[in-house]
Simulated assay, not measured.
Amino acid sequence: MSQLTHINADGEANMVDVSAKDDSVREARAEALVYMAEETLRLIISGQHHKGDVFATARIAGIQAAKRTWELIPLCHPLLLSKAEVRLEAIEAESCVRIESLCRLRGKTGVEMEALTAASVAALTVYDMCKAVQKDMVIGPVRLLEKSGGKSGHFKVES
């Protein structure tokens, strides 16, 4: 296992210096699931939710979150994303909403945290918009699906 990169020789948390790294195309995909009652999911799918289009609002929230990850997660670098995408789908058989995010850039550091933040905030937005109807929704798992670029190379979760 690799050592922690955000801890210096004195054991203190610090921001990693990426100035000597080569630029490369870096991409990450993440997912989050929101489990809910069938009635809640039907309300979302039908478009009859009193707060409006749940998927559109969650999509925008996730994209905004990806762009602002550095403000939310200590020690993350501010990044100029070239792509931030959030897709939501209702999975009726499991009574859940699946959220998948994709973040990409050409730069010195990866975009895993941006993809994870996008999926997480989109899931929280689904919860927020539906909590008046159902308070016991469950968010999770949230996980990295795939990442590419950089020195550590390609990673893909085994389904």
Rank of each mutant, 00 (worst) to 15 (best):
L43S: 12
V138F: 06
D23T: 09
K151C: 07
P78N: 14
A37G: 02
Y127I: 14
I7W: 04
V86Q: 15
M15G: 00
L72F: 06
W70V: 03
N14E: 15
V142I: 15
T40H: 04
T5R: 14
R104N: 01
K156E: 14
Q48Y: 00
S159G: 14
E89V: 04
E100N: 01
A37E: 12
G11S: 13
S148G: 08
I7E: 11
E92F: 04
A115S: 15
A30C: 07
E146W: 01
Q48N: 12
S19C: 01
T109N: 04
K51S: 05
Y127G: 10
H77R: 14
A56T: 09
E158M: 11
L105G: 05
A30T: 07
A115Q: 03
E12V: 10
L33T: 02
C103N: 07
L145K: 06
A28Q: 05
G52V: 14
V157N: 06
A30I: 10
A132Y: 03
V157W: 14
S148N: 09
T69R: 06
D128N: 12
S95R: 15
M1Q: 14
L72M: 15
T40Q: 02
L33S: 12
L102D: 00
K67D: 05
L72V: 13
Q3M: 15
D17L: 08
V121C: 04
L33E: 06
E12N: 14
E71D: 15
H154C: 08
L79K: 08
P141D: 13
V34A: 08
E146Q: 10
S82N: 10
A118F: 05
G47R: 08
L81R: 05
D23M: 10
P141H: 12
M15C: 03
A123Q: 13
A32I: 01
E112V: 03
H77W: 07
L102H: 09
I45L: 06
G153H: 01
R42M: 09
I139W: 03
V157R: 13
S19P: 00
A66D: 07
L43M: 11
K21Q: 13
M129D: 04
R59E: 08
G149H: 01
A37N: 03
L145N: 09
V133L: 10
P78E: 13
V18A: 08
M15I: 13
T40P: 01
T57I: 15
V142E: 02
V86Y: 12
R29D: 05
A119Q: 05
S24Y: 02
R106Q: 11
L79A: 04
L116V: 11
G149M: 03
T109Q: 11
L79Y: 02
K67C: 02
R98F: 00
G62T: 04
Q48C: 10
F55D: 05
L124V: 07
H6I: 14
S101N: 08
Q48P: 00
